[in-house]
Design a protein around this nucleic acid. Structure first.
Lengths: 224, 224
DNA sequence: CGAATTAGTCACCAATCGTGACTAATGTCA
DNA sequence: TGACATTAGTCACGATTGGTGACTAATTCG
């Protein structure tokens, strides 16, 4: 988060780090050095010759200790709306952080549930909204839910993650049947006993190329 | 596209205009003023204070006479790959042009079927590939096929457009049943007689909000 | 007129999906 | 120790959706 002010950078790289906290999506914000209770999305300007996603990786790494396992560009933003940098445009990336990852120490960074995000600059607010909506609509194309979970997880946890992202309850049997047909996970030989109740088998994300999903068209998904 | 060289712009706006020509997707390229047979994606730098998509609209309008009915940002590109501008990064937009739109006159612009696109700068090549792949994967979320057709079209034309985008044959009855269930088109009272055979009724794109498509999850679409 | 051609529909069957009820394996507590 | 609560995991039925070939409809051509 360099805060050098000598000359205005041509563009900033902003990072939307998302995780799941207690059944809600949460975004990582950075405390502004100047204001008292002002928060911003982490951002920086690119070093000389650095690729766009490399800058995003560097930012993530500097905050979390390592890069996110998944990252996607959200787009470029710059409708003249204000931004903590004075850059004309900002290129935004979204990254997913598994639950259970140790939180960054120090009072500089904090996770905010989406419902409790404080006021941001207009451009960063738009970036956040676009990132969340993109994550939610790209679920079918990207392994989003898996990247919000640790490497090993129970099927109930996976289902709850899907329910969180879809904001909709799923039926257990349907969910597992669909999962089976998609060849996305494989069981490990470990089990986890979570208090009372039968222990759950742990699975890992292991997509197989089998069956290229030769299905029909789905016109009914068209939103607008 | 302006070719002023005095100072390097901070970023360029590149536009990928796509249409369908004889059963193939085609992209509009602009002849380089310097080289003899060099072609580029249309691009320009933003005027002062102009929003990103406003620049893209201005470029489209200057080429086609009017803006495209549909346009989407593809993203920001700038991994140090070369670009006709010397901008560090380029923000790309895709726009769809209905078949039958009068082609831009003069030898400056031309439509190239995707298979016959000449060599482009590395960055523009990447932009084009990303744009096409985005269009194809976002078909379910955006009315892509409809924006490649004139306002009124026959269902056979619509089906052929879907077949072109999906690179896959569709069964007539299935296609029409899915279309009916999606409430996307409405019939007009006009018909078109295309040579021999029974005349076809013309339809228009008229999505209705009915039935929010309360369907299950589709895990089997997950690609990676 | 009849054949060819394209549009549009129907109906059968298979595959998929929503659902409730079932079994399985553990902890809790009397 | 045994009944109960709790969570995991599966099964099977009926309803819906989807793939498909064959059908009817309306036009041009010769």
């Amino acid at each position: 988060m360099s805060d050098r002010r000598p000359r205005k950078p041509p563009y900033s790289i902003d990072v939307v780090l998302l995780t799941a906290v207690r059944g809600q999506l949460a975004v990582l914000l950075s405390r502004s050095p100047d204001g008292r209770e002002k928060w911003t999305l982490p951002w920086d300007s690119a070093k000389n010759g650095e690729a766009l996603d490399a800058t995003a990786s560097r930012i993530s790494k500097s905050i979390l200790g390592e890069d996110t396992a998944w990252k996607e560009q959200i787009g470029a933003f710059g409708d003249g709306k204000r931004h903590p940098s004075d850059a004309e445009i900002s290129v935004a990336f979204a990254g997913l952080v598994p639950t259970g990852t140790p939180s960054p120490v120090g009072g500089v960074y904090a996770w905010f549930p989406l419902a409790d995000v404080p006021a941001l600059s207009p451009r960063q607010r738009q970036i956040l909204d676009t990132a969340v909506s993109m994550i939610r609509t790209r679920m079918d194309q990207s392994p989003v839910a898996f990247r919000l979970l640790p490497q090993m997880f129970t099927l109930t946890e996976l289902q709850q993650m899907y329910e969180l992202l879809l904001a909709k309850r799923l039926h257990k049997a349907s969910f597992r049947r669909a999962l089976q047909g998609a060849w996305l996970v494989e069981p490990t030989d470990e089990w986890r006993s979570e208090g009372r109740g039968r222990p759950a088998q742990l699975y890992r994300f292991a997509p197989r190329k089998r069956r290229p999903a030769q299905r029909g068209i789905r016109l009914d998904l068209l939103s607008s």
